[in-house]
Simulated assay, not measured.
Amino acid sequence: MKQDAHTNLHSERGPLRGEHLGRSRDPVIKVADLAWLEFEKTDLDRAEAFARDFGFAVASCTPDTLYLRGTLPGAQCVVVRRGPRSRFLGPAFRAAEAADLGRLAATTGSDVRELGELGGGRVIELRDPSGFPVRVVHGVTDLPPLPEQHPLTLNVGVDPRRINRAQRPAREPARVQRLGHVVLETRMFERALGWYLNTLGMIVSDFLFLDDQRDRGPTMAFLRCDRGGDPADHHTLAMHLGPGVGYVHSAYQVADLDAVAAGGEYLADRGYRRVWGIGRHAQGSQIFDYWRDPDRLMVEHFADGDLFDCTVEPGWAPMSATGLAQWGPPVTRDFLGTSPSPAMLHTVMTALRGENELDAARLLGLMKAMKA
């Protein structure tokens, strides 16, 4: 039985009559998880140095490809390929069953092929309505676990568990455990949302809408994998309407708040740039800390995120800058992507002239929300 969002499980508001259901009645398949993300970088040595400082382990490397992993068993988290510029190439999702690739191939007219890389397996290559290449893989051999960075033992209220021992978290990289989610910006929000729900069987945990334009539908969605009764991350993929089309950030789980904080101090000591943090998000509830890598791509350490099974219905909330966190420092322009620049102006003008879902009213509503 589905749980109603009005029960305050995660949002004070649920859908109004006739609003988006947040799931497909008959999806082609239901992906089980986000497998990895692929990037292109000009300098693999610099990319590896940041990756180690951020807390990744190197699973394998060749002269032209770097495979990064977390401590938990599974596939690599990130694949970095040498290329002429630094950019996001796209996500890879893990199919629940081998037959899912065949169903996708029959529906989309794509081919299933062997994946001749680390871990092997088979892959089908698709493209979403925004133009992002999307891979769906199955049969990739899991990497074995690595030594963990264990959460600290906390003395909480009347339940002390640490006696005659002091807390001294090491100032060291926060060991990444696994890939959590990726966030994308798109001018084709409704079309892209429908594609991920209908093709990959994802379901919406939370919608955000422009406060004075709710009748036009949501402008952001947090999507999770539908594993039935098995819980999944509040969001594996998040998308929002905007003038650009591209990568916003990706997030990687670490052990606890102290790992987030001490790992952040280590990154600061090494001269990297914090974008926003530390705080606790509203949608997803996770403790967050955002950083820029040397190529200015944004990445997040997180801990203590929400897990939902398939029974939880979408929550609905107004989009606003202050609504992004329950506590923490004020959100930065860098995080919001609202710092004025000639490139930003060009992106906006290009979007308004194109055939997409962004018009002047939507743009003004988004600008108002990011100042709220």
Rank of each mutant, 00 (worst) to 15 (best):
D4A: 12
A5C: 06
H6Q: 10
T7L: 13
N8H: 15
L9W: 12
L9T: 05
S11T: 00
S11E: 00
G14I: 00
L16P: 01
L16E: 15
R17W: 15
E19H: 02
L21N: 06
G22P: 00
R23I: 03
R23Q: 13
R25D: 13
D26M: 06
I29Y: 04
I29P: 02
D33R: 12
D33P: 01
D33E: 11
W36V: 03
L44H: 01
R46I: 01
A47T: 06
A47C: 03
A47E: 03
A51M: 01
D53A: 12
A57W: 02
T62W: 12
R69E: 07
G70I: 02
T71D: 09
T71N: 05
T71W: 04
P73I: 02
Q76Y: 13
V78F: 01
V79G: 04
V80Q: 04
P84T: 15
P84D: 15
R85E: 14
F93S: 06
A96Q: 11
A98W: 00
V112L: 09
R113S: 14
E114N: 06
E117M: 13
E117C: 13
G119M: 07
I124T: 05
I124G: 07
E125D: 15
D128E: 11
F132H: 11
F132S: 04
G139E: 03
V140W: 08
T141N: 05
D142N: 14
L146M: 05
Q149C: 03
P151T: 10
P173Y: 06
P173M: 08
R178H: 13
R187I: 02
R191E: 15
G194P: 13
Y196N: 09
N198Q: 13
L200P: 10
L200C: 04
G201E: 05
D206L: 07
D206Q: 09
F209E: 01
L210C: 08
D211P: 05
D212Q: 10
D212M: 00
D215G: 13
G217L: 10
L223N: 05
L223A: 04
D226I: 04
G228S: 02
G229K: 09
A232Q: 10
G242M: 08
H249Q: 13
Q253F: 02
D256P: 08
D256K: 11
A259H: 07
A261C: 14
G263L: 12
L267Q: 08
L267H: 05
R270H: 15
G271D: 10
Y272L: 04
Y272V: 09
R274A: 15
G279H: 06
H281P: 07
A282I: 12
Q283D: 11
G284P: 00
S285I: 04
Q286W: 06
I287E: 11
W291F: 09
R292F: 15
D293T: 07
L297V: 01
M298V: 13
D304G: 11
D306G: 05
C310K: 10
W316K: 02
W316P: 03
A321H: 06
G323H: 01
A325M: 09
A325H: 09
A325I: 11
W327F: 15
W327C: 10
G328W: 05
D334T: 14
L336M: 14
A343I: 10
M344D: 12
M344K: 11
V348P: 08
A351F: 07
A351C: 06
L352P: 02
E357G: 07
E357A: 05
D359Q: 08
A360W: 12
A360V: 14
K368V: 06
M370E: 09
K371E: 15
A372R: 15
